[in-house]
Simulated scan of single mutants.
Amino acid sequence: MKKIIIAICYTGIYFSSPAQDLLSLVDNNAPQKEHVTNAFKSSRVLNGHSMEFIGKGELDIRILHRFGEINSGPNNLFGLDQANMRLGFDYGLLKNLTIGAGRSNVGKELDGFIKFRPVWQSTGPGSFPVSIVLVTGMTAQTQPMTDTTKINYFSNRLAFYNEIIIGRKFSERFSLQLSPVFVHRNLADLASEENDIYALGIGARLKLSKRMALVADYHYIAKGLDKNKYKDPFSLGFDIETGGHVFQLLFTNATGMNEKSFITNTTSNWGKGSIRFGFNLSRIFTLGKRH
């Protein structure tokens, strides 16, 4: 009897082990939900925000330069004698939440923003085909007011923008996003101008090689500005990855380097050769534990 019981136990162990191994293989091979990354290599397309985020605990120091207009001629070294810049600091509070601040010499302007991603493009069970990103920001001009004959309140210096980014990485090579933007200026430049401006941004990235991509950034001004005076900002350039840096070389008709500035104050015309060469330099530092 004792031998029969021992034999039954060994038989149970023999047949149960393969079953457990097979169950383990089924679980490991089951489709998993995965988030799509690297739709853009920078948190900016060129001028505007991209659907991409920096990681939690990471600090992105950004240096942006826009030179003068190329058609200013050789006496101005085709615009290189002039320079406008923005110094910015973006920090990843969470993997889906970024805050940032910067200062531009265009208008002596301070700016800050909050960027949140409620929906992240993913594959597998429960996946979603696009990313949805919300951005809200504020700017404040610090240069002296042009009209000193009247009382100028601090609120007159403020402007605000809200943006929804809807984007998708279609393949390893191509990403596209649309971004409706609403800008409100507490004080317009002229009494005849509107305080509220509506625009639609389009951003695209086409990967050319392992470390280089073609990038385009365009904002169509739908309402709120005189199209005879103001132009739609358009930028075309290249992403170049160099270790911990993302270097963007670009050509643009915009001087401003935040949403309020380049949407409401672009007057140069691509068709007349009023184009500026510029670059964006991004360097990320990990301040906490990498996530």
Rank of each mutant, 00 (worst) to 15 (best):
residue 7 A to L: 15
residue 16 S to H: 05
residue 21 D to L: 12
residue 23 L to F: 11
residue 33 K to L: 12
residue 34 E to M: 12
residue 37 T to E: 13
residue 37 T to H: 12
residue 44 R to Y: 09
residue 51 M to I: 09
residue 52 E to R: 03
residue 56 K to N: 08
residue 56 K to P: 00
residue 60 D to I: 02
residue 66 R to D: 00
residue 69 E to H: 10
residue 73 G to K: 05
residue 82 Q to R: 14
residue 88 G to Y: 01
residue 92 G to Y: 00
residue 93 L to K: 07
residue 93 L to W: 13
residue 95 K to Q: 13
residue 96 N to V: 05
residue 101 A to C: 11
residue 106 V to Y: 12
residue 107 G to F: 07
residue 109 E to H: 01
residue 113 F to I: 01
residue 113 F to T: 01
residue 126 G to A: 11
residue 126 G to K: 13
residue 129 P to V: 14
residue 130 V to G: 06
residue 132 I to R: 01
residue 133 V to P: 01
residue 133 V to L: 06
residue 133 V to C: 06
residue 142 T to P: 00
residue 143 Q to R: 14
residue 143 Q to W: 07
residue 147 D to K: 08
residue 152 N to A: 14
residue 153 Y to S: 10
residue 153 Y to R: 10
residue 154 F to P: 00
residue 154 F to N: 13
residue 155 S to H: 08
residue 157 R to W: 03
residue 159 A to W: 02
residue 161 Y to M: 04
residue 166 I to H: 02
residue 168 R to D: 06
residue 171 S to P: 01
residue 171 S to A: 11
residue 172 E to M: 08
residue 172 E to L: 08
residue 180 P to R: 05
residue 185 R to H: 06
residue 188 A to K: 05
residue 195 N to A: 06
residue 196 D to G: 06
residue 211 R to P: 00
residue 215 V to S: 01
residue 217 D to I: 00
residue 221 I to V: 13
residue 231 K to T: 15
residue 234 F to Y: 05
residue 235 S to D: 08
residue 235 S to W: 01
residue 236 L to V: 14
residue 236 L to M: 08
residue 239 D to W: 02
residue 245 H to C: 04
residue 247 F to L: 11
residue 247 F to S: 03
residue 248 Q to Y: 03
residue 249 L to A: 04
residue 251 F to W: 07
residue 254 A to G: 10
residue 265 N to K: 15
residue 265 N to S: 14
residue 265 N to W: 04
residue 271 G to W: 06
residue 273 G to P: 02
residue 276 R to Y: 04
residue 280 N to G: 03
residue 283 R to Y: 15
residue 283 R to F: 10
residue 285 F to R: 00
residue 291 H to P: 11
